[in-house]
């Protein structure tokens, strides 16, 4: 009853050709979804802006020599009392908000990307080992995953944060906040990767090419990395995209809750947290612009993730 979908361009099968066809199909679907194109442009633009923050910013908000308290809480330039030096106004320290957003975005991005990379590394490794080795190792890893899955990521992140804080008594938050955020995110999001990878590994490991590799006497780590990994990595792409948005939200939330980055190294979350304090006195801009940047960026990433999931799902086509 179901129709066989003809392969695009009806090229002969083959690994490199197949991936080219994939690319071709994805490109086609990509340009057919204007919203996704807009989202992609926005997220690339925001990422580039964050990357080139020192070039685009009018000041370095992290440099105390450039920040003057006398400039605190200046509204955006189009409002009464605005100052042309500070297009989007300033925060409570007198930092130019536009520059602070660029630098804050950079901080958020670095933490988000590193956190996701850590989560993926942990998850993929454990998933491969669980699926390939099986038995008791598998049981232990997956039980841990099950238990952890019952806790929302934010709770895990808070716990990790609290424990590190307790263990690093006396040292300043600035010295470890960065690493702890990455660790928190990594430890909160690994389960999904592990489950996905384990599932595909269970299927792949019984295929001939793995048997062959084993018969030739290749060491297990090599089999896992060289042969198994490339064949199970596909579905991880969608999770990576969606997780990047989640990770950035998590970082912002932790910073907002006061257990993330200190006000001296503001991320977007820190800026929003500062702005929240001044919301009641009518200084709306401190919370609005960082909030808007965060929302637009995460929304764009999620739009791409959503599209990617649909585009890679063969049943929906």
């Amino acid at each position: 009853m179901s129709m066989q979908t003809p392969p695009a361009g009806s090229s002969p099968p083959g690994d490199s050709l197949w991936s080219r066809i994939m690319a071709h199909d994805l490109t086609y679907l990509f340009f057919r979804s204007p919203l996704t194109v807009v989202a992609a442009i926005l997220s690339v633009a925001i990422m580039l802006a964050a990357l080139m923050a020192p070039l685009l910013a009018s000041m370095d908000p992290f440099d105390p020599a450039q920040v003057f308290l006398a400039d605190a809480n200046i509204p955006p330039v189009w409002q009464d009392g605005g100052d042309p030096r500070f297009v989007l106004g300033t925060d409570d320290q007198g930092r130019d908000l536009y520059s602070a957003i660029l630098y804050g975005m950079r901080v958020s991005l670095v933490i988000g990307l590193s956190g996701v990379a850590l989560a993926a590394t942990i998850g993929i490794t454990l998933g491969l080992v669980a699926g390939y080795v099986g038995g008791r190792v598998d049981a232990v890893i997956m039980r841990v995953a099950d238990v952890q899955l019952t806790f929302p990521a934010i709770l895990i992140a808070l716990l990790v944060n609290g424990i590190v804080q307790a263990l690093s008594k006396g040292t300043s938050r600035e010295t470890w906040a960065f690493g702890v955020l990455i660790l928190s995110i990594g430890l909160s999001f690994w389960v999904q990767y592990a489950r996905t990878i384990r599932g595909s590994t269970l299927i792949e490991k019984n295929k001939d090419y793995i048997h062959a590799a084993r018969l030739v006497g290749q060491p297990t780590p090599l089999i896992l990395l060289r042969h198994l990994l490339p064949n199970v990595i596909g579905p991880v792409l969608v999770i990576l995209t969606i997780n990047l948005g989640l990770a950035i939200i998590t970082e912002a939330t932790l910073s907002f809750l006061g257990v993330g980055l200190p006000p001296t190294q503001p991320s977007l979350g820190t800026l929003i947290s500062i702005g929240n304090k001044y919301l009641f006195s009518g200084d709306w801009w401190i919370v609005t612009f960082p909030g808007l940047t965060l929302a637009i960026f995460v929304l764009s990433i999620n739009l791409i993730g959503d599209w990617l999931r649909d585009a890679l799902n063969p049943r929906l086509q």
């Binding site: 939200i249 912002a252 809750l257 979350g269 909030g291 929302a295 995460v298 999620n302 739009l303």
Partner: peptide, 10 residues
Amino acid sequence: LVGVSLPTFL
């Protein structure tokens, strides 16, 4: 999509 993209605190 906006709902899952906006952080709760925002």
